[in-house]
Design a protein around this nucleic acid. Structure first.
Lengths: 208, 208
DNA sequence: TGTACATCAGTGAACGCGCGTTCACTGATGTAC
DNA sequence: TGTACATCAGTGAACGCGCGTTCACTGATGTAC
């Protein structure tokens, strides 16, 4: 299963003064930079350069570099939420299986969109108070939390919350270690995706 | 339980041309910078400045910035290994309990030394091939792997390896989410350490 | 339908900054004899 | 015990670089009347 196709970044019509959709173009360019160079390597000027626009132009749409990255992170949490709901749906009617599929979807998202995933948890580079950021990230967590609560043996609400944090920790840790290259020596030839598809279901079997 | 006291960074005797132990001083200064500003905020010049030395001096000891950070990461993996072994020992003779204490120790290390922990998994900033780095990081993982293997129901070696990766994922994810501030809204007043000491044992109860 | 005008979305030059690294050098140390 | 000399561990000035942001500006758009 792969990700839905991303919308193309509109290119400026030649000879035009206005871009048309510079906002989207800057976000696409920025994601490409994140992929190539990581969050550390992102610069606002480079994003402007790739969008074919002067270094001062982005300010009209995002205020500053932090604003652009925050917008990208919001987009990331929206996509993550979509992955989780799609995974859940794939799990059919058994709550335990639905939750497991959600976990697989979490890691799949991280491997499909490493740059976004990375950025989403780099609070130091984001406007952590941004309402959209707060809302979309909490919405994504809610999907997980409800998935846990739907399981018959979930226990008290507090108990269910703890199980949700446990599940989150496991899939988040797996994703991070995978992306940071810590599994490379285990995955070897087969590649990270295949390694994940083989191991993660077993790992998620235990706690349910 | 808190960490053992760090050795002080030697300060240059006033009026002396040679520093005495610039290597240690630079590492201590660098760790302080990492704590204050994060890995992103680290610069070689700032480290030199804090050690009271010209910007060219560090090259004699570490080659370049990457070399300095790698040395710090090695130190980090050594300390992590010590935490894991100490935790294990605290677990007494029951293998399951020993493993659980090891997991607690992993997260405790991360919370006690957030800057080091962060750095240790930022391969992009390190000499990933550095022999000392490879060795110390593998040594730390071995402690965990042997802890899992010691459990009676661990199953085949492959099965045990998978359980080790599962345990690693859980504690690593918990630590990362905690450090990245994702638990702040749950932890609230009590603080991250107390929150961890209360929740993590319950989380590690499940899979053993 | 035409036009005045406010607003929006760009330009491009300039700012001041701190960075990593290189370079030729010098002061201090320690070792061979 | 003394001394020559290689090696080591520093200096400090300079390099070229790319960065984020500011500024006064202008071209394009769209709306009120």
């Amino acid at each position: 299963m792969s990700s839905p196709p991303e919308k193309e970044a509109p290119v400026r019509a030649p000879g035009r003064y206005h871009h048309g959709d510079l906002r989207a173009a800057l976000m696409a360019a920025s994601e490409a930079i994140l992929l190539e160079r990581g969050v550390e390597g992102f610069t606002l000027r480079e994003a402007a350069r790739r969008a074919g626009v002067s270094p001062a132009a982005p300010a009209h749409h995002f205020g500053d570099a932090r604003g652009l990255l925050t917008a990208l992170a919001v987009q990331g949490f929206e996509t993550l939420g979509a992955y989780l709901r799609a995974g859940e749906a794939q799990g059919g009617s058994d709550p335990a299986r639905r939750l497991k599929e959600q976990g697989l979807a979490y890691v799949r998202f991280a491997l499909d969109h490493p740059a976004r995933f990375d950025l989403m948890f780099r609070r130091a580079r984001l406007n952590a108070q941004d309402p959209a950021l707060v809302e979309t990230s909490q919405a994504a967590f809610s999907v997980l939390q409800e998935g846990v609560a739907a399981i018959p043996g979930a226990g008290s609400p507090e108990r269910a919350s703890i199980r949700a944090l446990a599940a989150w920790s496991t899939v988040h840790g797996f994703a991070r270690l995978a992306l940071d290259g810590e599994f490379d020596r285990f995955a070897g030839e087969v590649g990270l995706h295949a390694f994940t598809e083989r191991l993660l279901p077993m790992i998620l079997e235990g706690p349910g």
